[in-house]
Design a protein around this nucleic acid. Sequence first.
DNA 1: GCAAATAAAGATAGAATTATCTTTATTTGC
DNA 2: GCAAATAAAGATAATTCTATCTTTATTTGC
Lengths: 145, 145
Amino acid sequence: MFSKACQYGIKSVIYIWKQSQIDQKVGAKETAAYVDAPEPFTAKILQELVRKKIIGSQKGPSGGFYIGKEHEAISLMDLVVAIDGDGLFTGCGLGLKVCSELDPCPLHHEINKIRIEMIDMLTKKSLKQLAEEVESGETVLRRLV
Amino acid sequence: MFSKACQYGIKSVIYIWKQSQIDQKVGAKETAAYVDAPEPFTAKILQELVRKKIIGSQKGPSGGFYIGKEHEAISLMDLVVAIDGDGLFTGCGLGLKVCSELDPCPLHHEINKIRIEMIDMLTKKSLKQLAEEVESGETVLRRLV
DNA sequence: GCAAATAAAGATAGAATTATCTTTATTTGC
DNA sequence: GCAAATAAAGATAATTCTATCTTTATTTGC
């Protein structure tokens, strides 16, 4: 469903959010280690997210990635689209050039229904909410064993 | 959502079904042309589907791919799994090694809900049904313009 | 100003997916 | 039996995704 890059991105951003709550910027290395993702690849993804204004960054000692007021409204949807693009949500699910309500491909209605639910879920979930659920222990971001 | 191979596979199998209804075996070339997919790639996919008993094939003149009684119970789910594997439906959506109802990843419940709907849809849709809807004009398999 | 820490950028490599080409095996119709 | 048609198998190439390494640019603390 999501690419590896996207999976790493989602987990990283939740961690960065969590640390930003206690005013800590976090490095790519620390983040990658925490979410169990390859470090240089994670760094690339975070770089890209900064470019797209999903998160912020600061160079130099005690620098790192962070999430500030300006990123608070970011939804999971924004994040996923920033990394994977909108291919999951738009275009024909079977790759037809022409596919619409009027000329639906054999899976048009079915895929549409699932897409709507997916978009709904990703739009409603804020990163804040995800981070808070991890914080409270409702969900887990990494294995602690 | 589905790989290209899977998209080509789904469309091809619907066409093959349709032709099997009128007792016509169809070649890889004809199938690929009909569903607007690259020919050698389509041939490979169909080969694989034969190996997995999703469709049948016969060599020689007036041979080709077909769908017989023995394939009638095949669901879309069988087809998708045969080509893309079950990665869409199993394992953690964020790639965590440990993720379950008891130790859910931040998206576990949400992804589960969508997966259940997807599995439900793919399991209930038979290839027969898809082919009949194309036949009746309810849905379209390729652009006719 | 300088050293250290960090992100950013760019180059490279490995693996998987997508796609093509060539050769071989089988089947049919004559 | 032979030619033609077709699927099957195997080799190769192109592209994209995943991953790493190296160099450069910034920023901080001293």
